[in-house]
Design a protein around this nucleic acid. Structure first.
Lengths: 343, 343
DNA sequence: TGGTCGCCTGAAACCGGTTTCTGTGAGGCA
DNA sequence: TGCCTCACAGAAACCGGTTTCAGGCGACCA
């Protein structure tokens, strides 16, 4: 028993019924007499039959699968994105296809190929060319996550600008800091681009000259350590504060600063973005911006599933999820009143 | 043009040929005259036809997809695993389905469902019940990654014991340390279980009494911070060294120790496992064990693809990839001679 | 000129399901 | 008793490809 080679016709033969009846029983659709149902269920049970996914998908005209495209996996941000997406998709009985485009020359082709295997795709902003994105959107529903798509492709993003504006203003105005550095590569992702723009914007609002160039590094802790080396290792005067594009970089800068004997925040202020779990636990705890990362892709999955269900529906436009400034010790603020974890 | 609703029959009608000819041309199989080929290619080009994946998969009896099952995503270790798998699979034109079983009650069912959608599955050790694993192996080729499967299911693992034995012996014998703590939950994964066993084994080999209990926490940096709190925060005498189940925990402990004003390695020795990029860059640089994480899943993908190609083939047995002890500053060793990154 | 061989083509079967459509028998009502 | 309705079962079409199989036709050979 339990052979997976069973087909609906084989079960029909064994149960002495037609394939239509087997299909009806196994799907719970249509009218089937008690006697027939019993015979079919018995045969199904006895031989461990489970309908083949391909046959079913072909007949239904839908794959029962969702795609997720991202540049490459780096750090907790991406794992949260994946888990948010996966959780929502599996909840709707859809499987999840992933595609890392990073360092792959034919990624646009790969994405189009994915478009023929799934019912819809979520694409991280800035991952593939606009032209490929538009062609993809011509085959299946597409949602851009953490970025904006061309045309009327809907998107789900976090409010980068609002909180980064508030954070930078807090450092400049409330803590009266000057000479802030920004660590992160605006060309690397739409998110960082928005954060860098808001960082500069806050300076301009207050009539302060912002730095001309960011310290353009990638988004992992190791990159933060490299940035620390660059900012703190030489003979150049060190900045008063380092605004990092994400928490991982910030943790790297923090470790680099502590390893050099600097006191944070007295000698150097450091801030992050994302509010990863470690941010609340390091000493000093990290001032950062909390964003609903999982919710980003979960919402994208919901949009895709809805669009796949109702082909004629109009795209949902762009959705911006709120973020929240989380003030902790590393910017010079006193420890939060209770517990101090901020979570 | 470019309508994705085109079918092989439609193209055949437009080109004035049979569906068999269209299929032959689009696949490059069989013999087709130049004239026919030209007409078919013209129609394909003109209408942007690309064969539907479901129909093709159904006819071929293979999905062109591989599955990867893991408990949940935490940290760089898992992202490396995914990327190793994805890279190898996409290179063979197979798409990648992922499934996070973490905190999901029906994960065994989900895994079996995945078994009907892919040509083979790689499952992280300790992720699903043995019984479900055996049933899955009855439907498609299965490889266990970082662990051992029941029955004769092949597996790909890193040599945890060898390097952890060497590392612990190094701390006990070469640095003459006593009272080492182990941070990590052996019940959480086969990897940690093996490392904990080897940690104790090295003690026994040298006639030293190991600690009875590990500091059982999860595998992320935040958990290392919690472990630091537990080990260094109270009034109890602090250990001479902390052997961590992975680098992330170790970095957490390191940050916790530095944040408390301790000097590493003078006041406290810390070691990790994995050799993540940040390990070489922190101050002090982290003594750890390098393991070929991407290679683990890449090898698993290759095994699966091979098994899917040759159904009668015997399973490959278990494969143990070598690991390497990387001695840096955090155990008390002098800085490596050149550059010091160890990479 | 007749026979054989080989190249090329298309009709049809097949992969494994779902769904429509037709038909049959039983039961209710006049 | 005759007619109508309704519940239920099965044959067949369908989803979109691939592949087998049989046959047509031209070339080559005797």
């Amino acid at each position: 028993m339990g052979n997976s080679r069973m087909t609906v016709r084989e079960i029909a033969r064994l149960a002495g019924v037609s394939v239509a009846t087997v299909s009806r029983v196994s799907n719970g659709t249509g009218q089937v007499s008690e006697e027939m149902r019993r015979r079919v269920l018995e045969a199904i049970e006895k031989h461990g039959y489970r309908p083949d996914h391909l046959g079913r998908a072909l007949a239904a005209g839908r794959h029962g699968a969702l795609g997720l495209v991202f540049p490459g996996l780096s750090g907790p941000y991406f794992t949260e994105l994946i888990q948010g997406f996966e959780s929502e998709a599996v909840g709707s009985r859809a499987s999840v296809h992933i595609l890392c485009t990073h360092l792959r020359s034919d990624s646009d082709d790969q994405v189009l190929e994915m478009g023929r295997r799934v019912d819809g795709v979520a694409v991280m902003g800035g991952t593939i060319a606009d032209e490929a994105l538009l062609r993809l959107a011509g085959m299946v529903p597409v949602v851009v996550v953490a970025g904006e798509g061309p045309g009327d492709i809907p998107s789900v993003r976090a409010d980068n600008a609002g909180s980064m504006l508030a954070l930078t203003r807090h450092l400049l105005a409330d803590h009266d800091l000057r000479d802030l550095a920004f660590v992160g590569n605006p060309a690397g992702s739409p998110d960082v681009s928005e954060r860098w723009a808001a960082f500069r914007g806050a300076h301009h609002d207050l009539g302060i000259e912002p730095p001309n160039e960011p310290v353009a590094v990638s988004m992992q802790q190791a990159d933060g350590l490299l940035a620390a080396e660059q900012l703190l290792g030489g003979d150049a005067p060190r900045p008063a504060g380092v605004v990092c594009a994400n928490d991982e970089i910030a943790l790297g800068v923090l470790v680099g600063a502590l390893g050099r004997g600097l006191r944070v925040p007295q000698d150097l202020v450091i801030t992050g973005f994302d509010d990863v779990p470690a941010a609340a636990l390091v000493t000093p705890s990290l001032t950062t911006v909390r964003q609903p990362v999982r919710e980003l892709t979960a919402e994208a999955a919901r949009l895709i599933l809805r669009a796949a269900d109702q082909p004629g529906d109009t795209p949902a436009g762009s959705l911006v999820l709120p973020t929240e400034l989380v003030l902790r010790r590393s910017c010079g603020c006193p420890a939060p009143p209770t517990g101090g974890t901020g979570r």
